[in-house]
Amino acid sequence: MRVTNNTMIHSIVRYLTRQNEALFDRQNIIASGKKITTPSDDPLGMGKVLDYRQTIASIEQYQTNIQYGKTRLDVSETNLELVDEFVRYFRSIARTEVDGTTESRLAAAETLKNIFDQILDLANSKLNDNYLFSGYQIKTAPFSRDDSQATTFDKFTVSYNGDTGDAQFIVADGTTVTMDADGQRIFHDAASGGINVFDVMRDLIVGLENDDTVAISTQSDLIDQGRTQIKNVRSANAPILYQLLASENHWQHYKPKIEDLLGKEEDADVTRAVIELQSLELAYQSTLATAARIIQPGLISFLE
């Protein structure tokens, strides 16, 4: 083949351009720390990267949801535990006052009225400005009594203002955890054959005020049943907590794996890129050196 000056110059320019492109690529990889900086760097890889990113964002949201669920469960458990203690106090007063005097019974009635209100407050407890035990009616206080009524009986008759709704938390793709938010089932369950804890307590207070030993004794047994009803609701929360913890545990282990996959897909092996850069530099420099030696001389240089 007949090789002219321009043939050599063109091929040197082509090689140098190619090497510069490769150098530029490595430089980009090192500077950005990523091996995929445009979709065309690896179309399939880019698809995976987007998938992993979305998965991680979803997992983070699930973790937030689970945290909400746990907090809710925690708060309602703490409240119900306190309710239980107060109700137990009610029962112990009832037991004591079966043998009490008229005066002691009146005094006990006054104490129990205060505790009644504390239990009512706990049943009306809120989390993030939402009532915990009013079903879907989270902005309505679930339980109320009317202080303006004339008799103790009427004053301490509590009505339920919520509904039978529940609270749901998304813990995984297509999986929700449902938590009971129906305060009626906990405190006010006479309608479906259970105990209306507030009625029982009210009757006890009225019994004490009326010095009615039979009523005090009856209510004392009913209070025990009320405690069992609240305990049952609390124990139903245990499997829900387990479900939340299991999901949380799952995501805790799953997320680093996805992050690892994302890293493998998109992060550059900088060490390798640097080594490649060095070898490219060497190639580039030798091309330059060769070019300098080939382009310069011609026959002209040797003619006098």
Partner: peptide, 9 residues
């Protein structure tokens, strides 16, 4: 270039 190009040499 190999056919038509100018070779200075």
């Amino acid at each position: 270039e190999s056919v038509s190009g100018v070779s200075l040499d």
